[in-house]
Design a binder for these strands. Structure first.
Lengths: 148, 148
DNA sequence: ATTCTATGGTTGATATGTCAACCATGCGCT
DNA sequence: AGCGCATGGTTGACATATCAACCATAGAAT
């Protein structure tokens, strides 16, 4: 059994990994929010409504697809609704709620897409080597698999 | 010049990278906070006070070492002070503030260290191959360098 | 019929982050 | 003296996240 504290190398790895992510991710989000007024959450919601749902999705499906709790989504949608980005419509079929992207939401998304694409290319993809791509892909497979 | 939207492969990479990080990081933080009652921020503050400062550090140095704004740190310290984890002492030398780890803070940190070490080994280090280690190290170097 | 449980969602309290405005002091310059 | 400016920090407002409690209804199970 190893020591119950991390050695210098282990700690260094953890900090580098965490640091790189936060640095890159922060840059992407900053670019997006400055240029579009959308937060990461806003973009995620709009993106999924557009791609998966063709503009609409029931709340629970949306929450699942984003890996968010229903509470978190509920609060967030309330704020987005206030800003006119989405609308909620009760489904009497089974007391669910349908979330719809509004025209304003759709146009905000359309404006954001190229901004996000450019930011991801500039701050993330541009730094990757072939080896990194392989590493990222494999690691994702390993962690998801052993997930639940 | 490429298209101004991401292609499937680019998007997949971004999502995998982001997803792996959030999954792993979330697991580590969850383990820690459940077993110790400290948040990530709490741990970071205590850790730096202990390692860099031998128990104390001026507020601005602490903020720099954590990559936090002074505002963020000020708010966080107020909460930690309330809980008795740290104390603040004015430095009349140059109107700065010295942040001290309290005995309760120190013992909370000592309890947390092995928990954090175990969580990082279990959720992060255990998944890494030699290639990942190299990839993480190099990527960190590249992004920091091109940072400012 | 009654009670249990699962599903779908809301709500309020509290913790955490960000932003801009503010305050005080020291320091250099004119 | 008077000004501009940098440094070190606080504050309040607001956005975001988490947690637990709650509400309503549908479908079993008793």
């Amino acid at each position: 059994m190893e020591n119950n504290e991390l050695n210098a190398e282990e700690m260094r790895l953890w900090h580098m990994w965490k640091g790189s992510f936060q640095l890159i991710f922060g840059r992407v989000i900053k670019d997006m929010s400055e240029h579009t007024g959308l937060s990461e959450g806003d973009y995620g919601v709009l993106d999924r409504l557009d791609l998966h749902g063709g503009g609409q999705l029931r709340q629970q499906e949306l929450a699942d697809s984003m890996d968010w709790t229903k509470s978190r989504l509920s609060h967030h949608l309330t704020r987005m609704e206030q800003r006119g980005l989405v609308a909620r419509k009760p489904l009497d079929a089974d007391r669910g709620v349908q979330v719809l992207i509004t025209p304003e939401g759709k146009s905000a998304l359309d404006e954001a897409r190229p901004v996000v694409a450019k930011a991801i290319r500039k701050h993330f993809l541009a730094y990757l080597t072939e080896q990194d791509v392989e590493s990222i892909t494999k690691l994702a497979g390993r962690t998801k698999a052993g997930s639940l």
